Simulated assay, not measured.
Amino acid sequence: MTIEQLKYIVEIGKTGSLKAAADQLHITLPALSQSIKQLEKELNIPIFHRSRRGSIPTEEGRRLIEKAQVVLLKLQDFMDEVETYTETMNGEIKVATYPGPMEILVRVITELKREYPNVKASVYENSTEFIIDRVLEGEVDVGFITYTEKEEKRYRNLVFKKLVDGHMVAAVNKHSPLAKETLITQDMLIGQPIVLYNDKYIQEFMKGFSSLPFDILFTTNNVDTIRLALETNTAINIGFDYAFRTDAGLSRSDEYVLVNFAPPYYKTYSFGYFYNANNGLSRVIREFLKRVRSVIVD
C-alpha cells in the first residue's frame, strides 16, 4: 500500500468515476485502474462496485476512504510541520471567486509567489453555484462568495468564514434619474432595462420582484460588459455591493453610482471564503488566507 493509492481511492470516492479521478490526478485511466486492483488484491477487500454508472464505494470501501482521508490530513500536517523548520514554502493554491475580489486575490498570490517561488497557483472566476460545486468536488481548495445562513446550513461539510458584511444594490449611470434617489423601491424598477451577472443568488434576489414587468436586457458572466452597459447608460445593474467596491473595472469608474434598496429589499449578506472540511487546509493556503484577511478586514 502506498500514499498515492490512498489519494487514488479518496479521489475516486469524491468523483464516483475512475475516468474523472484519473483526470484530476493527472494519470492515465489504465494506470489508475491497475493500481486500485493491486490495492484490492493486497487488502483482499473490494473497495468499489464498478458499473457503467461509475465506481461506487462498497461499505468496507467507504470506511477505508474515510480512514484514508484522515491519514492524508495527518500527512499534510506532518509536511506543514517540516516546512516550519525551513524558510521554504511549497504547494498549490487553487481558488475560485465571484467578480469583485479578483484583483485582491491576484495581488496577494503575486506577493506570496515573490517570497516563495515554488508555490503554484490557479484562480478561477465564475458564479456562486459553480464555485460551491468545484469546492465540493475537490477541484478548488477555497472559494470566495457572498452567502447567507442558508448556505451554511445546507452545506454541512463546508466551512464558511466571514470577512465582511454586504448587501444588494442597484448601480445606475450618474445621468440616470435614479441616481438622484436615496433608496430604490420596486416600482422604480418598472420599465428599467436591467443587466445581471449570471449568478444563482442574484437571480433569487430578483424573484422578490417577480410580480413586476421586468425588462431583463441580458445576463452575463463578463464584468466588463456590465461596466460598459452602465457607462453608456444602456441599463442598470443589480448586484452585491462588495463587487462594485473591489472589482478593478467596476470600482475605478466614476460614470455610475450605487443606490441602496428600500426595505424590505435591503438584505444583508456575508462575504467570505469557504473550504471543504474533509480536505482541510495546507500551510500555504492558510498563509494565503491570512494575507487576504489582512487586506480586506484589518
Rank of each mutant, 00 (worst) to 15 (best):
T2Q: 12
I3W: 01
I3G: 12
E4H: 07
Q5S: 04
I9L: 10
I9H: 01
T15F: 03
S17D: 06
S17W: 01
S17M: 04
A21C: 04
A31G: 00
A31Y: 10
S35V: 01
S35Y: 06
I36E: 04
Q38D: 12
Q38W: 08
K41F: 13
L43M: 14
P46I: 00
P46D: 14
I47S: 03
R50I: 11
S51R: 03
R53F: 09
I56T: 15
T58E: 01
E60I: 12
E60V: 12
G61Y: 06
R63F: 08
R63A: 09
I65L: 08
I65P: 07
E66S: 11
V71K: 10
Q76E: 11
D77W: 11
F78H: 11
F78I: 13
D80F: 05
E83S: 14
E83L: 05
T84Q: 14
T86L: 04
E87A: 08
A96P: 04
M102N: 01
M102D: 02
M102G: 02
I104E: 02
L105P: 03
R107W: 03
I109H: 00
I109W: 06
K113I: 05
R114T: 11
P117C: 00
N118E: 10
N118M: 12
K120Q: 13
A121L: 02
S122C: 04
V123C: 05
T128N: 09
I132E: 04
D133R: 15
V135P: 01
L136D: 00
E137W: 12
D141C: 06
D141K: 04
G143P: 02
T146A: 12
T148M: 11
E149S: 15
E149F: 14
K153N: 13
K153Y: 09
Y155R: 07
Y155F: 15
R156A: 12
R156L: 15
V159Y: 07
F160N: 02
L163C: 04
D165W: 08
G166F: 15
G166T: 12
V169R: 08
V172T: 15
N173F: 09
K174F: 07
P177W: 12
T182A: 13
L183E: 10
T185S: 14
Q186Y: 06
D187A: 04
D187Q: 13
D187S: 06
M188N: 02
M188P: 00
I190H: 12
P193T: 02
L196C: 03
L196P: 00
Y197I: 15
Y197S: 03
N198K: 10
N198T: 10
Y201H: 15
E204V: 02
D215K: 08
L217C: 05
F218C: 12
F218M: 14
F218H: 10
N221M: 07
N222L: 05
N222T: 09
D224E: 12
T225L: 13
R227M: 08
A229R: 03
L230F: 08
E231Y: 02
T232S: 12
T234R: 09
A235H: 09
I236W: 08
N237F: 15
A243Q: 07
T246R: 07
G249K: 07
R252F: 07
R252S: 13
D254F: 10
E255P: 05
Y256D: 10
Y256Q: 03
V257H: 07
V257W: 07
P264Q: 10
Y266L: 11
G272E: 03
G272A: 07
Y275E: 02
G280Q: 00
L281Y: 05
S282A: 11
V284W: 00
R286T: 11
F288D: 00
R291L: 01
R291E: 02
V295C: 03
I296M: 11
